[in-house]
Every structure is written in structure tokens, then in C-alpha cells.
Simulated scan of single mutants.
Amino acid sequence: MFGTFRSTLVAQSGLLWKSPFRLSTTRKANIRKRLKAVDEVIRVVADSGVQCKALDEAQTLPTESEMSPRDKYTVFSRHAVGYRKSMHKVPKFTKKTIRTSPEGF
């Protein structure tokens, strides 16, 4: 049918873009690779002799190998049950550096 009551994917099955509940092994590998790439950039810039506040703060962050799996793949969220939510639920998680959590979480 055409018009107001036409059958579309959204109308038939709900949301068109569904995000999986758990991270797949491929997504986890991509997150680890991205964290390692960021660590490498921080190391190269620090070795070049550049001094700035952002670089000093980036050097205090834990590296990918020092992070626990809980911190690699989940993020603190005060609204989520258990105060944690999966990394891929964060908007633009590929562009943010989220490596620390509040004490006790």
C-alpha cells in the first residue's frame, strides 16, 4: 500500500538499526587495535619533545595492556543498571578517549 499506512521495515519490525547486546570478538579486537594505535601516537609525540597540557594528561592514562577488560569494553554510566554500559553504546566512542572510571566502579 501507499500513503500513510504503507508497510516499511520500521513499521513492521520496530527500530531499523539495532545494536547488539554484547560486543562481538571482531568489535573487541578493533577496540584493542584502536587503543594500541592511540598509545603509539602518544608515545611518538612524547618522544618528539612537544610539551603541552593535553599530552601530559594523556601520558598519565593507562596503556591498553595495563587496562582491565572491564575498562576496555565498558564505560561508567550513572543511569545504567550496575553503573556500566557497553562501549559501543556510547555515541562516537571511536573518537573519545575513555580510559578511566570513578573510584569504586
Results as ranks from 00 to 15, higher is better:
R43I: 02
V38I: 12
V50G: 14
H88C: 06
T60S: 06
E57F: 04
V45I: 10
V90A: 05
K18E: 11
V38R: 04
Y73W: 10
S48T: 04
L55E: 03
V45R: 05
L61M: 15
V44A: 02
H88V: 01
K85M: 14
V81E: 14
K33C: 05
R43H: 11
A46M: 01
G49L: 13
F76A: 11
S86F: 02
S48H: 00
V45P: 02
R70V: 12
D39M: 09
T8W: 14
R84T: 06
T60I: 09
E103Q: 08
K28A: 00
K36T: 11
S48R: 05
D56Q: 02
K95P: 03
K53E: 03
V90H: 03
K96P: 00
V90Y: 08
K33R: 09
T63Q: 02
S13W: 15
A29K: 14
L23S: 03
V75Y: 04
V45D: 05
L15V: 12
K72D: 03
F105P: 04
M1I: 09
E40M: 06
T25E: 12
Y73G: 11
A58H: 08
F2K: 08
L9H: 05
L16W: 07
A29R: 13
L9N: 12
V41L: 14
Q12G: 10
R78P: 10
L61V: 12
T4M: 15
S48M: 02
F5K: 06
V90M: 07
T100E: 12
T8D: 11
P20K: 07
T60F: 12
I98W: 01
E66C: 12
M67F: 01
S19A: 15
S101P: 02
L55S: 06
L15W: 10
M1V: 08
R43P: 04
A29G: 15
L61R: 04
R43Y: 11
V90G: 00
E57Q: 07
V44H: 04
S86P: 05
S19C: 15
P102Q: 07
G104C: 02
G3S: 08
P69C: 14
S86G: 02
S101C: 01
Q59K: 14
E57D: 03
R78D: 07
R22D: 12
S7L: 13
K72N: 04
V44C: 01
V75M: 09
I42C: 02
R32N: 05
F5Q: 05
V50K: 15
F2D: 10
K96L: 04
L9V: 09
V44I: 12
F105W: 04
R84D: 07
F76G: 06
R78W: 09
K85A: 08
G82V: 05
V90S: 00
A80Q: 13
Q59H: 10
D56W: 00
R84F: 09
P69Y: 13
T63S: 03
F76H: 14
L9M: 12
R22I: 07
K92V: 09
Q51R: 13
R6A: 06
S101L: 11
K53Q: 08
K89D: 08
G14L: 08
